[in-house]
Structures are given as structure tokens and as C-alpha cells.
Design a protein around this nucleic acid. Structure first.
Length: 382
RNA sequence: GCGAGUGUAGCCAAGUGGUUAAGGCAUCGGAUUGUGAUUCCGACAUUCGUGGGUUCAAUUCCCAUCAUUCGCCCCA
């Protein structure tokens, strides 16, 4: 028999690890719930077109990482590569904007990208995300960031660096894009091949190239900040000042450009040493309209749970719950009684494990000890 | 999609072109023992990811394939 194995890039979250997941999810649920955020559960697959229109066809996520397939009705479907597009689709389709303006929606669940697995990267991974739809308030930007930082801190990740930047408006980016292309074009031959390609396709992404020579060239390049309109700059300053008021440390990274097309104004990432970004987000004022909804400003973020938990595992052991009682029994009569007693104790709220082996007492005691139960019930005699 | 490494039991892991593939941990069975600890005995890979090739002979050499790890691209 050939053993069937998990699909490449997927993995099982085994019982020994699942405590971390429950802990993180519960922490997030509490913090977000206290902030009037409502959970939303959307399908894990959507029409391919949703992501093409929402995320942007020029992005790598859409261009080469989508997990797409045709269904029996000849429709092109895609396993969601991120959460925002689906939430926005739902927001529009269910007319959630009619419910009274602002919606703070959060979600957690699997996402899929067809890539080579690597440290901190899988084909199926999980994200926790928040989308605040229907507000352009500067305070919303700070609130969204603060909630994410609260969650990271509450699970114990204190050495996460917050990087922020402003991408300005669409118009700001158009003018910046032109300025950047003007600057880089004379150096075209010296850029790495990827960046040369991006020069026409997606110039802003050249900014976070890791190629040394490319970064040298960028030293003197114009910065996004210089192309911001006065209004955009003022808006950014107000966001920063709110963060400062909240005591949230941040670093401005003028080269921070997010990978998806829909961002504008505030963009941010939560950086770790081991994985790079464990999460990130930003404002996406144009997306809802882009997908056919009413003009709706919005901001959101997502955190990668595999990465978050990977960091957490270095800091603490798995949150778990030992049994309260371990029941040992030997002999036909005692064994028959054991089950009834176990059920009775469980009905009172105790966590009870029953030994089913029927082996010698000292063997059962050994297991009772290792179970971590505080009490051992012994049934049967010699 | 590209580059490099790895693939021997639940886990860690030695090993060699040729009779029975070390060892440790864990597990299981049993014995001893007034502590569930220790000690002792026993069990636990017809087989070395899979398929093919070279060879008189391959776990060991070659090829392919799959998986996995790390890096690039990109991102969570």
C-alpha cells in the first residue's frame, strides 16, 4: 500500500501544537470583540475574477501564485490568496454598507498561494485579519494598528517592529511613479533583471529589492514622501501623532510598498527578525468601488498565524490543559464501573481520562503520572 | 519558476558494493522493587522515500520521480 501524504505545502496541525492556535484565536477574539469588531466567515474559494480585479493583475499574487481551477460548470475558481477581497465582496453583495456605515469585520482562516514552500511559507497558511469598512477617519488607521499591536502583545510577542509609510492617493502614486521611473531609467542596465522588468510593470516594487547594486542606485532615488500632496502628508502626520499618543512605537520606512495594488495612504507591516513580516496592512479607499460597491473608504490588516505561532513557540511552551482525574482499573467488575464513574465526573465539569489497557496497576500508574492529572481514581483490588 | 542540500523504525541516528542493517530515546510485554523511581529480561526496519538502471551482488554507484529543508523571486 502506498501511503497517501499531505499535499505539498500543506501540513497537519497536530494535537501537541493546537494549543497555540486556540490560544491565539481566543486572544484575538477577545481583543477584537471588545473593540466592536464582528467576525465574518466567507468562502475559501471565490470566482477568479474577484482576485484579478481586487488585488491587481500585475501583482505576483495574482500573476503567478493563484491556486485556480475550473469546476464542473466551467467556471474559473480560485482558493483565496488573501482575505480582504472576499470580505469586500461579501460587504457589497450583502449590502452591509446599508446597515449603518461603519463595519469592523474580522476573520481567521486558511489562505492559499501556489508557491514553493520555504521557512514561514506554505501553500495553505492561515491569516487573522481585520477590515474596517466605511470610514476615512484618521483615527480608524490608528485604531486598526493599535488592535493588531494589542493582539501581538497579548500573545507575548513584544519585540515586533511596526513599520509605517504613506502611499498617498492614487494621484500621488502616479506622480511618484513617474519620478521614480525618470530617475531609474538612466540606470536601467545596472539594475538586476527582475527590477528591469518591474521598471515598466510595477516600478514601486523595485524599492524593496534585495539586490545590493539596485539598493545602491536607490540611495539617491526620490522618496515616495516627496511626491505626497500636502493633504496626504498632513494625514500621515496625524496618524503618526495618534500612534505616538497611544504609546505605540513605530519606524517610518519610506520604501515600504505593499504587494497588493489596492493600498493607499497608510501602509504598515509588523516585522520580526526571523520571518520578516508577520503581518501587514493598510488603507484601501478605492477597493470597494473597484469591485462594484459604493464609494467606501476602508483600512485593514492581516497577520500570518504560522509565522506568529512560529515566533511564539520560541518563547513559551504549548498552552494546554492537563486532565483533572485519571481513572485506573483492573478486573472485570472494576473496569465496568470505571466508565460510569468517568462519565459522572465529567458531567460535573472535571476533565477525566480513563485507562483502557487493563494492564498491571504499576503500568497504569505510570500513565496516570504522565497524564498530569492531579487525582488518580483506583478501582479494583489485587 | 530557478539554485543547493537531505530522505535508514514513532523520534534521534551509525553504517558498508557481498552472510543476521549498530546504538540511544520513546513505546509495549514481563520480572525485581514498599515510592508511579531505579534495575533486569524480552519485543519493536523480510528492509534502508518510490521506480528504473549498472553489477555476479546495492541501503551503499547512476538516472528519474516524489517528499522535505534552505536560499532566490514574492509574501503571511
Amino acid at each position: 500500500m502506498v501511503v497517501i501524504q499531505a499535499i505539498r505545502g500543506t501540513r497537519d496541525i497536530l494535537p501537541g501544537e493546537v494549543g497555540y492556535w486556540q490560544f491565539v484565536e481566543q486572544t484575538a477574539r477577545e481583543i477584537l470583540g471588545r473593540a466592536a469588531c464582528l467576525e465574518i466567515r466567507t468562502p475559501i474559494f471565490e470566482p477568479t475574477e474577484l482576485f484579478e480585479r481586487g488585488i491587481g493583475e500585475a501583482t505576483d499574487v495574482v500573476g503567478k501564485e493563484m491556486y485556480s481551477f475550473m469546476d464542473k460548470g466551467d467556471r474559473s475558481l480560485t482558493l483565496r490568496p488573501e482575505g480582504t477581497a472576499g470580505v469586500v465582496r461579501s460587504y457589497i453583495g450583502n449590502k452591509l454598507h446599508g446597515v449603518g456605515g461603519l463595519q469592523r469585520l474580522w476573520y481567521v482562516g486558511p489562505m492559499f498561494r501556489y508557491e514553493r514552500p520555504q521557512a514561514g511559507r506554505q501553500r495553505q497558511f492561515h491569516q487573522l485579519g481585520l477590515e474596517m469598512l466605511g470610514t476615512a477617519a484618521v483615527r480608524a488607521d490608528a485604531e486598526a494598528i493599535a488592535l493588531a499591536m494589542d493582539i501581538l502583545a497579548a500573545v507575548g510577542l513584544v519585540d515586533i517592529r511596526l513599520e509605517v509609510n504613506s502611499l498617498g492617493t492614487k494621484e500621488d502614486r502616479v506622480s511618484y511613479r513617474a519620478a521614480l521611473v525618470d530617475y531609474l531609467t538612466p540606470y536601467k542596465e545596472e539594475l538586476d533583471p527582475d527590477s528591469q522588468d518591474r521598471l515598466t510593470r510595477n516600478p514601486l516594487r523595485i524599492l524593496d529589492s534585495k539586490v545590493e547594486r539596485t539598493q545602491e542606485i536607490l540611495q539617491a532615488a526620490p522618496l515616495l514622501g516627496t511626491s505626497l500632496s500636502v493633504e496626504s502628508q498632513q494625514r500621515f502626520d496625524r496618524v503618526l501623532s495618534l500612534l505616538t499618543d497611544l504609546g505605540i512605537q513605530y519606524e517610518i520606512n519610506p520604501k515600504l510598498v505593499r504587494g497588493l495594488d489596492y493600498y493607499s495612504h497608510t501602509a504598515f507591516e509588523f516585522q520580526s527578525v526571523r520571518f520578516g513580516a508577520v503581518g501587514g496592512g493598510g488603507r484601501y479607499d478605492g477597493l470597494v468601488q473597484e469591485l462594484g460597491g459604493p464609494e467606501t473608504p476602508a483600512i485593514g490588516w492581516a497577520i500570518g498565524l504560522e509565522r506568529l505561532i512560529g515566533l511564539l513557540q520560541e518563547l513559551r511552551s504549548a498552552p494546554g490543559s492537563a486532565m483533572d482525574v485519571y481513572i485506573v482499573s483492573r478486573g472485570e467488575k472494576a473496569e465496568a464501573q470505571a466508565l460510569g464513574i468517568a462519565q459522572k465526573l465529567r458531567s460535573t465539569g472535571l476533565k477525566v481520562e480513563m485507562d483502557l489497557s487493563g494492564s498491571a496497576f504499576n503500568k497504569q500508574f505510570g500513565r496516570a503520572d504522565r497524564s498530569g492529572a492531579r487525582v488518580c481514581v483506583i478501582l479494583g483490588g489485587e
